[in-house]
Simulated scan of single mutants.
Amino acid sequence: MKAIVTGYSSGIGKAISDILEKHGFQIIKLKSRVDDFDSLEKEVKSLLKVDDIDVLVNCAGVGIFKPHEEISLSKIKELIDVNLTAPIILSNLLLRSLKKTKGHIINIASVEATRHSKFSALYTATKSGLRDFGLALFEELRRSDVKVTTINPDLTKTNFFDEFNFEPGDSKDSHLLAEDIAKSVLDIINFNGVITDITIRPQKLEIKKKS
């Protein structure tokens, strides 16, 4: 079984790669940046000449949370390219292979895809777009036996928050761990049926401002 996991080098992506590898998957690590679409297309097409893919996990993501008029145009483009365009392109490039293997596309969106938060308009737009893409694509692919799942994690303690002025709280019931999301991915893959959309949240809400 072969899987492509974007964002495999850290955070949730690394945790997913690690747990899949422990359960017999060969992780195909793409060398191209997910927002370098020409290189990505060439690499994937070259890969598919020798391999078919069983699972695609679209996990690479970036965020920004500030007043919309303060966001640079380059940052707007980056978020749309990484969070939304890249998963759409990778799904397009891999679909014929996934149809052969009756495979699975798993999109890591965000709890922000399910609600409307202050200073999150751009991030929410990309993640809700990814969520709706996955839900609609599942309807398209049902007869081909390709499964599509979107996971919407709430606050997860990873390096995602390194560049922000806030982070999840310290108490263990106020945040998720990357390993929690990874275990969910494994359960979803092994589930006899299709979980099309799932939101995973800690019991409590606690956000800590950095000093």
Rank of each mutant, 00 (worst) to 15 (best):
I76E: 09
E78D: 13
T6V: 04
I106K: 12
N107W: 02
F191Q: 05
A125R: 11
L205K: 13
K127W: 01
F65M: 05
L205R: 14
D132L: 09
A121Q: 09
A86K: 09
E167R: 14
E206I: 01
K66I: 00
I76Y: 12
T6P: 08
L93H: 12
K157M: 11
I89V: 15
D173W: 09
L20F: 02
H104P: 10
I80E: 08
K22W: 06
D18N: 15
H104E: 14
L95P: 05
K75I: 04
I88L: 11
K66C: 00
D52C: 02
M1G: 04
P153L: 12
V185S: 02
R33D: 15
L186R: 13
K22T: 13
S9H: 10
K75V: 08
K99Y: 01
E69A: 04
T101I: 02
K208L: 05
L93E: 11
G13L: 00
L90I: 03
S211H: 00
E167L: 05
E43I: 06
S174A: 11
R201E: 08
G134C: 06
E167A: 03
G63Y: 09
K45L: 11
P168E: 14
D162F: 00
R142Y: 08
F119Y: 13
L73Q: 10
N165S: 09
F161V: 06
S211W: 00
A60P: 05
I53K: 06
K99Q: 12
K183E: 15
V50T: 15
L186E: 13
L141D: 06
S46Y: 06
E139V: 01
D180C: 03
M1R: 15
K22A: 14
S72R: 13
D145Y: 03
D187Q: 14
V194C: 13
I207R: 11
V111S: 15
K45S: 09
T126S: 15
I80D: 07
S46T: 10
I189D: 12
L95F: 04
F191N: 06
I76S: 01
I64K: 01
K29C: 10
L95I: 14
T196V: 02
G169P: 11
N58S: 14
V82W: 00
V55L: 12
G61I: 03
N192Q: 14
Y8S: 13
E167G: 03
A121C: 04
A86H: 10
G61F: 02
D180A: 04
A3Y: 10
H104G: 10
K127Y: 01
T150M: 02
D154V: 05
R142V: 03
G11Y: 10
K172F: 03
L95Q: 10
I105S: 09
L20G: 03
T150E: 07
L205Y: 12
F138P: 01
V44C: 07
L95G: 07
A3E: 15
K127L: 02
S120F: 04
D35E: 14
L94H: 11
T6S: 15
V5P: 02
F161Y: 15
A125N: 10
